[in-house]
Amino acid sequence: MATSQTRRRPGRPPGASETRDRILSSARELFARNGFNNTPIRAIAADAGVDPALVHHYFGTKTQLFAAAIHIPFDPMSVIGPLREVPVEQIGRTLPSLVLPLWDSDAGKGFIAALRSTMAGGDGPEMSLFRSFLQDVITVEVGGRVDDPPGTGRLRVQFVASQLIGVVMARYILELEPFKSLPVPQIVDTIAPNLQRYLTGDLPRLG
């Protein structure tokens, strides 16, 4: 791993662009290696050779830094934040209502491009980042609210992820018609009952 000393350009303080890039490089490396929860801002700052306040200055919150590290061109809290206020029995409809318009937007094209690149690259660092985002961010935010019976929250979120990843594949990667051209409300109406069943319905007995 390159150290903060080797990343710095000798002879003069780094410029703003170089500092930002160095922070982002450290964040990608540490998030991929340790996961979201086990990577504090101060560790990223130390690896990049900057003050933690500078990380917040360039990227805002830890979640926003993570989004930048995995090339999500919008703040994940724009989805996660509203979900916190939604009753559990409405999450299955609210979630696709929030994410589908984002994926359809100009900003969402960057996310789809990053996901396509990650899938083509196999199980490398970027895949580790996406996996950490699902397990450490989404599962923590949603899984705890649907962990009934105890121990099923993580699996419930993974079932939801499988459905939404299928939508991404069919609509944005494979671009299957007529699915690609369906209005967002029609897709939401179709998949929402399944998502809600994954979140709050009975699951097959495991083990």
Rank of each mutant, 00 (worst) to 15 (best):
D51R: 09
A107R: 09
V88T: 14
A114W: 03
M127W: 13
I91R: 02
S105W: 05
P87M: 09
M77P: 00
H71S: 15
D147R: 15
S105P: 08
I72Y: 02
A68Q: 15
A113V: 11
P82D: 11
A120S: 13
P82E: 09
T152Q: 15
P96V: 08
P149M: 12
V99M: 00
A67Y: 01
P73M: 00
P52S: 08
A120H: 08
P87L: 10
Y58W: 12
R145E: 08
Q135F: 14
R156G: 09
T94W: 00
D106I: 03
G121P: 00
P52E: 04
R145Y: 02
G143H: 11
A67R: 03
A114S: 06
R145F: 10
G144M: 03
V55Q: 08
A48C: 05
P125V: 09
S132R: 00
G151A: 14
V50Q: 06
K62L: 12
G121M: 05
F159S: 04
K109Y: 05
T94F: 08
D106Y: 06
D51N: 11
D147F: 09
S132L: 09
K62I: 10
G60F: 04
G81Y: 07
R116N: 07
S132K: 08
D147Q: 14
I112E: 06
P101W: 05
D148E: 15
I138M: 10
E89D: 11
I138R: 01
G121W: 14
I112D: 04
I70C: 07
D51M: 07
V137K: 02
G49V: 15
S105M: 11
W103G: 00
P52I: 13
